[in-house]
């Protein structure tokens, strides 16, 4: 390729090294992508095809959406999808709002800036522990309520530090000129700071949304009622526990609903696959702002 810029001092790489590097990259990509391929293919195959192939399909012989139709036509999985989507949407909104507001308030000089910042940062050093948190959630009457999946983890100090670090880098003159024009703190935040911080807020929103969508233990601890089960709990019960993991014999018959199980896995992955490309180019920036300036 002609556009390659290789520094002169690096010299020409040896063919052996090039070959090894290519091999390493190929292995890494295959190891990551192989399970995705297997799950997608199996979920798109008919039950007969899956059985004929011995349980797993690497490339579907014929594509059918039977499995998806079955799980989306009501019942436990459909319900779990709706519950998880609602928790993710409401939770992410609350989290991003509280994080951005706190980040802005703590990046401005005020009489409480130092003590409150201390109060917030100290939580890095200790966590309250599982049982005290459980008892607190119980005291607040949130057990078996979807709020228990949102409020305890709604505010992440790390994400606040990331956003605050970015906001501290915005030139002070912008804020000053808005102040002179008579804008209050909230208006400055909404009109000037937010549009400038869109990238870092997108990354933080992705972190929060993925956290809510993927969280599993919170639901296991706080939720009993199966009608409030989240997708991850359903996945655990029907995919992990319902198949080979608990089977003793090694040459057991493959579970007939293999393609349905894989379809549930796909449903849990698809939203992440959709959101990922949107923020992917900002990821490095978001992670590093926090790491460097925090």
């Amino acid at each position: 390729m002609s556009t390659v810029v290789r520094p002169v001092w690096a010299g020409k790489p040896q063919p052996v090294v090039l070959l090894l590097k290519a091999l390493a990259i190929l292995v890494a990509l295959t190891v990551v992508l192989f399970p995705f391929l297997m799950v997608i293919s199996t979920s798109l195959s008919s039950a007969a095809d899956v059985t004929a192939a011995g349980g797993y399909v690497l490339w579907p012989r014929s594509v059918t959406f039977e499995a998806y139709e079955q799980i989306l036509s009501g019942g436990l999985v459909t319900r779990a999808i709706l519950v998880t989507a609602a928790v993710t949407a409401v939770g992410t909104t609350i989290s991003v709002a509280s994080t951005v507001l706190a980040a802005w308030a703590l990046s401005r000089p005020s009489f409480f800036q130092r003590p409150v910042l201390m109060f917030v940062l100290l939580t890095f050093l200790f966590s309250p522990g599982m049982i005290p948190l459980y008892l607190m959630v119980k005291q607040l009457g949130l057990l078996d309520s979807l709020w228990s999946l949102i409020l305890p983890s709604a505010f992440s100090v790390f994400n606040m530090i990331v956003v605050r670090g970015f906001m501290m880098g915005i030139p002070q003159e912008l804020v000053d000129s808005a102040k002179i024009d008579g804008a209050g703190e909230l208006r400055i935040l909404l009109r000037i700071i937010l549009p400038l911080s869109r990238a870092v807020i997108a990354v933080v929103a992705l972190f929060y949304a993925v956290g809510y969508w993927n969280s599993f233990f919170n639901a296991m601890l706080y939720i009993d009622d199966t009608s409030k089960w989240t997708l991850q709990l359903v996945l655990r019960t029907y995919v992990l526990q319902g198949s080979s993991l608990v089977e003793a014999s090694t040459d057991s018959v493959t579970p007939p609903a293999q393609s349905i199980q894989m379809a549930v896995v796909m449903i849990a992955i698809i939203p992440i696959l959709c959101a990922y490309p949107l923020v992917q180019r900002h990821l490095t920036k978001g992670v590093l702002t926090g790491a460097v300036k925090g």
Partner: peptide, 28 residues
């Protein structure tokens, strides 16, 4: 500074409820 204080309030309340108060629960 009260507008800024109002902005930081939700975060402080969440941390109080779900970090600091449960921390006291460790006396159990």
């Amino acid at each position: 500074d009260y507008p800024l204080a109002l902005m930081v309030a939700p975060a402080v309340i969440l941390l109080l409820l779900f970090v600091y108060v449960p921390l006291l629960g460790n006396v159990i």
